[in-house]
Design a protein around this nucleic acid. Structure first.
Lengths: 118, 118
DNA sequence: TGTTAAGCTCATTTATATAGGAGCTACTCA
DNA sequence: TGAGTAGCTCCTATATAAATGAGCTTAACA
């Protein structure tokens, strides 16, 4: 239910069309999203273990981020378990692994070169 | 005038303290910020030329992004011109150039590997 | 005396993102 | 019959970000 006639929306799409980097950054800037990726990479592959690992995340945000990551094919969702209570497992895709590597580079940069004023 | 007692604030600082990558991504996700950097890199070094280049940006946002970039030492502000009307020039710092290169990598990735559903 | 220019600042309005909490499903076990 | 579990969804409230528009400064020039 996003308002499609606002300048806010117009400018965002303008920038996303100018360069997909903006689209990627918008995705990455969703709170917890990269942490969810990294946590899956480390082996926390279920909703409940992710929730436990990322202490302060709330259910609906975790669900949303998992959905976003899946839609962008950065993770793979596997629900062929036919168990009750239901069981779903997530793994990183190849694209997800590549992105994770790139982010490691950015992380190193931010730790060694950036200055963040208080 | 940010509210320091909200869960929203608490979670953001939690993530920023966990890894400075989150701090960097938060910065980069401010709308227009990377575009301002790239535009300066391309030689648009004054407030007015930046404004012209980034057609839809508004004054206060441009001013804010320039201030953020300067505070993080990604650009350098030079106002030793003593002219009227006032003249200020911006250039990319070394750190800014490095970041720009890293972002080129991310940009290439997002263009070749990412899928953005409509 | 009034206008113009660049490079801003500030207050307010509007839009969007995040968080909180209830509820749903379908099956199992006590 | 009723409780419990995983993995969600939906609605609402709260917080934050972006945009709009007015105004400020200093000096030169008409």
């Amino acid at each position: 239910m996003r308002k499609l006639t606002s300048t806010n929306y117009y400018n965002q799409t303008f920038l996303e069309e100018k360069c997909t980097l903006n689209e990627l950054i918008n995705l990455l800037s969703k709170r917890w999203l990269t942490e969810v990726m990294f946590s899956i990479e480390e082996g926390n592959n279920r909703f409940s273990t992710l929730k436990e690992d990322l202490k302060h995340i709330s259910d609906n945000i975790l669900a949303d981020r998992l959905k976003l990551l899946e839609q962008h094919k950065l993770i793979i969702r596997n629900d062929n378990f036919r168990e009750v209570p239901s069981r779903v497992e997530y793994t990183l895709s190849e694209t997800g692994s590549k992105l994770s590597e790139l982010l490691d580079g950015l992380c190193h940069f931010s730790e060694t070169e950036m200055e963040f004023p208080e």
